[in-house]
Design a protein around this nucleic acid. Sequence first.
DNA 1: GCGAAACAGTACGGTACAGTATCGTACTGT
DNA 2: ACAGTACGATACTGTACCGTACTGTTTCGC
Lengths: 192, 192
Amino acid sequence: MARSGDFVDVRVQRSKAAVLAQTYELLSAGGIGGVSIDEVSRRSGVSKTTIYRHWPSRAALLIEACSTIGSAPPVPDTGSFGGDLVALIEALAEQLRSARWAAVLPSIVDAAERDPELAGLHADLHARLMAPFGVVTERAQARGELAADRGPADVTAAVAGPLFYRRWFSREPLDAAFVARVVEDALGHLGA
Amino acid sequence: MARSGDFVDVRVQRSKAAVLAQTYELLSAGGIGGVSIDEVSRRSGVSKTTIYRHWPSRAALLIEACSTIGSAPPVPDTGSFGGDLVALIEALAEQLRSARWAAVLPSIVDAAERDPELAGLHADLHARLMAPFGVVTERAQARGELAADRGPADVTAAVAGPLFYRRWFSREPLDAAFVARVVEDALGHLGA
DNA sequence: GCGAAACAGTACGGTACAGTATCGTACTGT
DNA sequence: ACAGTACGATACTGTACCGTACTGTTTCGC
């Protein structure tokens, strides 16, 4: 064994990084369906053989590439539920406007609708993206700031739903005025 | 010209109907990416040649097949905005639970994110599905039941957003309790 | 019955893709 | 220096797909 377990051959790191980078690139541009191993190989300069040396299948590569997207936003702690919520909503709106993954997510949702393997990926991604809402909501519940019959899932749906709808379904701009109205509505649910 | 303009050969009607039916079938099962002309031909018993006689391309067939989905739900008229809204929300929730198109829409959204031709289809579909919310909201505005700064687009986003989010993103069940909370929130926006 | 139209069947050409196999080269850690 | 390893190039198998060309048959409208 030439490897001491922890250290990985520099060549491997280089190849994997190049492949993942180009996979991510194609993913952003064409969604899951837009990624082919041939194209990744062509663009990254890493031969197909080598790609299959590091990932057992196209799906495995896709999953690894997707798992790096949508890094968890920081959980705000402004002291009040309202403040936290505003911070989260505005951060989410900003991401939906500009982040690369905003263009990729629909294809993941579509794939999850059928492929069980990718449904797992979708679940992970969703959990990672929405976790801050859960944290903030639970904190508010503990402080008694929230109506008793509202859980984290309800708050998240009430807040993220309109933003998602706007981004992918109505495709209207996520302008400041709209975001402000969503915030206002969300804060209207406070108390019993 | 053997055709008198209005009447279409029975054979043509038969073929087109069979093709559209199978296209819709494949669409429901596999989304847009799951439809191939070869497969449609195989299942429908209509030869590929004939399919291409009636549609110039795969995209054209897809568009026609999609345009039949999501038939506009009836616009309720209960006399009050609240009543109308409850009826619409419950109808939408029911469709999201069971309708075939609920499984197809993500792939259309994904396609619309890139392909301009299919973006048009998406826009049509969205307009058709959401039109009732617009009608009901405008009626309420005319009666002065609605806060002045809320338009149809806002109401639709606030109501459909959480349902869509739940159906496609969190993938939690659209149970009666959840729908009831969405209704409750929506009605909380009434008045100034 | 007859002509025109629609049809099925089939075989293409061309492209794209997943994944495998082989072989010789270049690099890395020691 | 050297052994082990990663690598690129290339070719290949097998599949699936779009769209077209051709041939002969069925079937409709009149």
